[in-house]
Computed example of a mutant assay.
Amino acid sequence: MTSDWIRRAFLENWGLKTISFFIAVLLWLFVVGEKQSDVHMSLPLVLDNLPKSMIVTSNVPNEVSVRVTGPRTIIATMKPSQYRVSLDLQGIKPGTSSYELLASRFGFPRGVRVSDISPSVVTIVADSAGVKELPVKPRLKGLPADGYEVSRIEVVPETVNVIGPEKALKLVRELPTEVIDITGADGGITREVEPLFPGPSFKFEKRTPITLKITLAKIKAQREFIGLPIMKPPEGWSVSPSTVTVRLTGEVEVISQITAKDITVGLSWPLPAGRGGEVVPVKVLLPAGAELVDVLPESVFVKPTN
C-alpha cells in the first residue's frame, strides 16, 4: 500500500507536477539571481505613549537614517513615507533612558536587510511635568514716528499657564513675546504675537492666542508759569496770596505757543454777604489743547477790606 501511495505521488498528474516544479525553480532563480539594490532612507522618529505626568527634556532626533539592501524590484516599491520608527515611552521615569533601534522595529518587507542604522541608540532624558502661571512680557524695538511715544501697552491675556520640566519651571518668572518693531509707527498697533518659551520642552497647558495692543500718542510736555496774578477781586475784598504757580501739560506744538496772557486765574464770586474771611479754591482757565497738572496754592484766603 505504501508503494502504491509513493507511485501515485510521483507518477499521477506528472505533467502538471513537472510544470509546477520548473516554475518554482525559475522563481527561486529569479529571486536569488536578481540584482541587489542598496538605498538610504530617512524615517521619522515618533515618541508614543508619553505619560501626561512626564515631559522629555533632551533633544531627540526627528529622523533615523537607515541603509537597506534587497532585491531591486522590492526596494523600488519602498517609500520612506510608508514607514516610521516608533518608541513606546509608556512607563518612562524621571532620568535618562536608552532605546536600541533594532531592525525588527521598521517592518520592512521580507528579503530586505538593514545594513546600517544611525543613530542605533536613542537616549531620552525625562522629568516630571509642572504647570505654572506666568505673566506675559511684551517686547518692543525701534522708535515711533517723530513726535509720538508709546502711551499704553495692553496684553490679552495678561497671564498664561505653561507646562514644562518641573525643576526648570521653578526658575522661570515671565513669558516674553516675540519682538514687535514699532519703528516709524504713528498709530495704534494690534497684533497676535508668538511666545518665546525658555526651551523646546515648554508649551501652553492650553493653546492660548496672545494679542498685543500698543497705543501711540503725540508726545506731551509740561510748562510751568510762576507768579500768575489772580483776577482782581470785587471792590471791598482782598486776596492772599495774590499770585499762583500753574503747571500744565499738552502736545509740544500746542503748549509751546501758550503765554501767561493766555491763562486766566480767578475765584468763585460773589461770596455770601456778611461773612468774614474765607478759604476759596483757585480756578484756572486754559487754552484748548492744554491740561492742568496742578496749581499752587490750590486755595487762597479772601476777606473783606472793611
Score class of each variant (00 low, 15 high):
residue 25 V to M: 11
residue 19 I to A: 11
residue 38 D to N: 13
residue 44 P to N: 02
residue 18 T to I: 01
residue 37 S to H: 03
residue 19 I to H: 07
residue 23 I to N: 12
residue 20 S to V: 12
residue 13 N to L: 03
residue 41 M to F: 00
residue 16 L to P: 00
residue 24 A to W: 11
residue 14 W to Y: 12
residue 46 V to Q: 05
residue 34 E to N: 07
residue 33 G to K: 07
residue 17 K to M: 00
residue 35 K to Y: 05
residue 16 L to V: 05
residue 39 V to N: 05
residue 43 L to C: 03
residue 23 I to R: 01
residue 22 F to P: 04
residue 28 W to G: 13
residue 38 D to Q: 14
residue 28 W to I: 13
residue 25 V to L: 15
residue 16 L to Q: 11
residue 41 M to C: 02
residue 32 V to P: 04
residue 29 L to N: 11
residue 22 F to V: 10
residue 34 E to D: 12
residue 45 L to R: 07
residue 22 F to I: 11
residue 31 V to Q: 09
residue 17 K to Q: 01
residue 20 S to H: 06
residue 19 I to V: 12
residue 40 H to T: 14
residue 32 V to M: 13
residue 24 A to D: 10
residue 18 T to S: 12
residue 42 S to C: 05
residue 36 Q to M: 11
residue 38 D to P: 04
residue 26 L to V: 15
residue 32 V to W: 14
residue 36 Q to G: 06
residue 23 I to P: 08
residue 47 L to C: 00
residue 17 K to R: 02
residue 36 Q to W: 05
residue 33 G to W: 06
residue 38 D to C: 08
residue 25 V to N: 04
residue 35 K to S: 07
residue 22 F to A: 03
residue 35 K to A: 06
residue 47 L to Y: 06
residue 13 N to G: 00
residue 30 F to A: 15
residue 18 T to C: 08
residue 44 P to L: 05
residue 35 K to M: 02
residue 16 L to A: 13
residue 37 S to W: 01
residue 22 F to W: 08
residue 19 I to S: 09
residue 29 L to R: 08
residue 34 E to Y: 08
residue 42 S to T: 10
residue 16 L to N: 07
residue 13 N to I: 03
residue 14 W to C: 08
residue 44 P to Q: 06
residue 31 V to C: 12
residue 16 L to D: 03
residue 13 N to T: 03
residue 17 K to H: 02
residue 35 K to F: 02
residue 19 I to E: 02
residue 40 H to S: 15
residue 20 S to L: 14
residue 27 L to I: 15
residue 43 L to D: 12
residue 40 H to K: 07
residue 29 L to P: 04
residue 14 W to E: 05
residue 25 V to C: 10
residue 24 A to G: 08
residue 31 V to I: 15
residue 43 L to M: 01
residue 41 M to W: 04
residue 36 Q to T: 06
residue 32 V to Q: 14
residue 39 V to I: 11
residue 18 T to H: 00
residue 36 Q to Y: 09
residue 27 L to T: 12
residue 28 W to N: 07
residue 30 F to Y: 15
residue 22 F to L: 13
residue 25 V to S: 09
residue 46 V to T: 02
residue 33 G to H: 04
residue 47 L to W: 04
residue 46 V to A: 01
residue 16 L to T: 10
residue 44 P to M: 01
residue 27 L to H: 06
residue 43 L to P: 03
residue 39 V to Q: 10
residue 41 M to K: 12
residue 35 K to L: 10
residue 23 I to S: 14
residue 25 V to H: 01
residue 33 G to C: 05
residue 39 V to W: 03
residue 44 P to E: 05
residue 42 S to I: 04
residue 45 L to Y: 00
residue 35 K to V: 15
residue 28 W to H: 09
residue 21 F to C: 07
residue 21 F to M: 08
residue 18 T to N: 05
residue 21 F to D: 00
residue 45 L to A: 09
residue 17 K to T: 04
residue 34 E to W: 04
residue 37 S to I: 02
residue 47 L to D: 01
residue 20 S to D: 06
residue 33 G to E: 09
residue 47 L to V: 04
residue 45 L to V: 06
residue 42 S to W: 11
residue 15 G to F: 10
residue 40 H to W: 06
residue 26 L to K: 01
residue 21 F to N: 07
residue 39 V to E: 05
residue 21 F to L: 14
residue 43 L to V: 08
residue 45 L to T: 02
residue 34 E to Q: 13
residue 18 T to V: 07
residue 24 A to H: 11
